[in-house]
Structure formats: structure tokens, C-alpha cells
Design a protein around this nucleic acid. Structure first.
Length: 153
DNA sequence: GCCAACGTTGGC
DNA sequence: GCCAACGTTGGC
């Protein structure tokens, strides 16, 4: 069992959008960074815990608890000509980009980036590492426990 | 809109 | 394999 933080721009898919989807589940399309892809393709397992994070918005932070559903599979948008995520070097025979499905377990209060930054037990989060730009980062079990407690209903 | 930081591309 | 140029991320 592993834990992850996954960033989504709310103008693209917000936590409310996710809650409204069938089974509150979304295919995590559009990742075009190899390290983030490898996390999904090689390391994620069903039931892994996910912190759903809003980025590039007025109030960045964790806004929901989610989980990985099913096995990784090729991101369909890489094959769609005209799609912003189209990749001409990818083929269905040799896909380049993968995704997993993510299901919202429950929406939470906003745990803002500012609050994460000031929490003594969260200083080492990969999210906060200098220059980090990854849209998917690992979360340690200890960090998960701290955040779960902060978000307890 | 700015800009720091980092990843990717492609010529050599 | 090097590295300059360019593109992207994402907080502010």
C-alpha cells in the first residue's frame, strides 16, 4: 500500500467535477512527464491512497481523499489527433503515456498549501521540495497519517 | 503577468 | 554526450 499526491487544475477537473462523475472516478489523462508516468505505470496499485490536490488556482491545496482503481492503461488522448495531449510518436502498439483511474473517497475541507508549509510534520513532503514540478508525488505513510488526522471529519 | 526551476529537444 | 534554446509548471 502506497500513498500519492496528485495535482489537478480545478478549471480542468475540480473535486466537485470528480464527485459528479460516474462512480466518482476519472481516468488520470494528460500526464506528459516521464517520472510521473512511471509512478502510475510501474508503482501504483489498486487501493493506494491519493491526496487530490488543486493546483494553478487561487487556493492551492488538498481538497479530497481518493484511491487508485484498477490497473494502469494507455492514456487515450495520446492517440487523438487535434487533442492537446496528442503525441505523434505514440502508437496503440507502442504507447508512450499511461494513466490510472482515480476514485474520490470523500471531499474534505481545504488543506491549503500554506497550512502544509507551516506544519512541522509535513516539512519533508516531496510536494514542498525546492523546484518540485511533478504533478504526482509520493506521500509517506507518516505524512498520510498526519494529513488524514488534519482532515478527519 | 512574472519568474524561478526544471525537463525536453536537437544541432554539433 | 554536451549544452543552448525553448517550453512548461505553478505559486505568487
Amino acid at each position: 500500500m502506497a500513498y500519492w499526491l496528485m495535482k489537478s487544475e480545478p478549471k480542468d477537473v475540480s473535486v466537485d467535477d470528480l464527485a459528479a462523475m460516474p462512480e466518482a472516478t476519472v481516468g488520470w489523462y494528460g500526464v506528459r512527464n516521464y517520472q510521473a508516468r512511471n509512478f502510475m505505470r510501474d508503482l501504483m496499485r489498486p487501493r493506494d491512497g491519493v491526496l487530490f490536490y488543486h493546483s494553478s488556482c487561487a487556493e492551492p491545496g488538498v481538497v479530497g481523499l481518493a484511491e487508485v482503481v484498477g490497473a494502469p492503461y494507455p492514456d487515450p488522448t495520446q492517440f487523438e489527433a487535434g487533442n492537446k495531449y496528442f503525441d505523434g510518436k505514440a502508437t496503440p502498439e507502442v504507447p508512450r503515456w499511461y494513466q490510472v483511474d482515480v476514485r474520490l473517497v470523500r471531499k474534505t475541507r481545504l488543506l491549503s498549501l500554506a497550512e502544509i508549509r507551516q506544519h512541522p510534520d509535513l516539512q519533508d513532503m516531496r510536494l514542498l521540495a525546492r523546484g518540485n514540478r511533478l504533478s504526482i508525488t509520493p506521500v509517506t505513510p507518516a505524512e498520510w497519517r498526519v494529513i488524514s488526522a488534519l482532515l478527519a471529519a
